[in-house]
């Protein structure tokens, strides 16, 4: 579904991704762990199409198309979703209106009519319950005054609304309390099926107890340096990153 080959990227003179390769198939959940500043969010942003980064080599193929040639909004309409590490606040637009615009953009892309007001309300109600997001949040301005955890819940709510094929979750677990973590993770599990896939970026193994990954990758200095199954995450939690650094000779 998503094939990243030898991806190199930089911001200004700073090289951040240094030959990253990753293959993700439908139905899979991949987790990425790795020290701060190693390029995880950069990878997520580049997949989503943020313009700040210059890709100097490599490619990202999504369903046979090189998405590096697509704008961020095209990618999203094609089914790529990024749950942000730091969701922005946008005063003046409600989450409801935002989602209506986003959903209708996708429907237009699929050749469908805009959703009716009735169906939209129904859909919102159904999807917000997946992450137990109270109705009142939907009429508030996007993320304005939301707590850290509420913002993350709102991200997964949006994911549920847009039903992407491929989702990157960038530290969705950070900022969530223990109950919220379970709720959000169970929400994600409800969204899993054989046709979609997830890339879960996290620092903590705990999340992976709920969202059980098929593969765990360790990223270091702009590359994936180790890949294993869910037990790799346990080992990372236990031993930290030093042994990885030693292994790659840093």
């Amino acid at each position: 579904m998503l094939h990243i080959k030898n991806l190199h990227a930089r911001v200004g003179d700073k090289e951040i991704l240094k030959g990253l390769t990753l293959d993700i198939n439908p139905g899979e959940v991949h987790a990425i762990m790795g020290p701060n500043g190693t390029g995880k969010s950069t990878l997520a942003s580049i997949i989503a199409g943020k313009a700040d980064y210059e890709v100097t080599a490599g490619e990202i193929i999504f369903h046979g198309k090189n998405i590096l040639e697509m704008s961020a909004d095209e990618r999203a309409r094609e089914g790529i979703f990024l749950a942000f590490q730091y969701p922005v606040e946008i005063p003046g637009v409600s989450t409801t209106n935002f989602m209506k615009a986003a959903l209708n953009a996708k429907r237009k892309h699929q050749g469908l009519e805009p959703i009716s007001a009735k169906d939209f309300l129904k859909l919102m109600n159904e999807k917000r319950q997946i992450v137990e997001l109270d109705k009142s949040y939907l009429s508030r301005s996007i993320n304005e005054g939301f707590s850290g955890g509420e913002k993350k819940r709102n991200e997964i709510f949006q994911m549920a609304m847009l039903e992407p094929l491929f989702s990157v979750m960038d530290e969705t677990d950070s900022g969530l309390d223990i109950d919220a973590l379970r709720i959000v993770a169970e929400g994600v599990n409800k969204l899993r099926d054989k046709d979609n896939a997830f890339l879960v970026i996290t620092h903590y193994q705990r999340l992976l107890n709920y969202i059980v990954p098929d593969f765990v990758h360790v990223m270091y200095d702009g590359r994936i340096v180790k890949t294993g199954d869910k037990n790799l995450a346990l080992r990372m939690e236990e031993k930290g990153y030093d042994w990885i650094k030693e292994e790659v000779g840093a």
């Binding site: 989503a48 199409g49 943020k50 909004d73 637009v93 953009a105």
Partner: peptide, 27 residues
């Protein structure tokens, strides 16, 4: 960053700019 947030949800750039302008002006 606000613009990218909207783009990342599939909203085209002209509409995203319109929405952000609306957000700004509607107060």
């Amino acid at each position: 960053n606000e613009l990218f947030y909207l783009l990342a949800r599939g909203i085209d750039e002209a509409t995203a700019r319109g929405i952000l302008t609306y957000a700004y002006g509607s107060s």
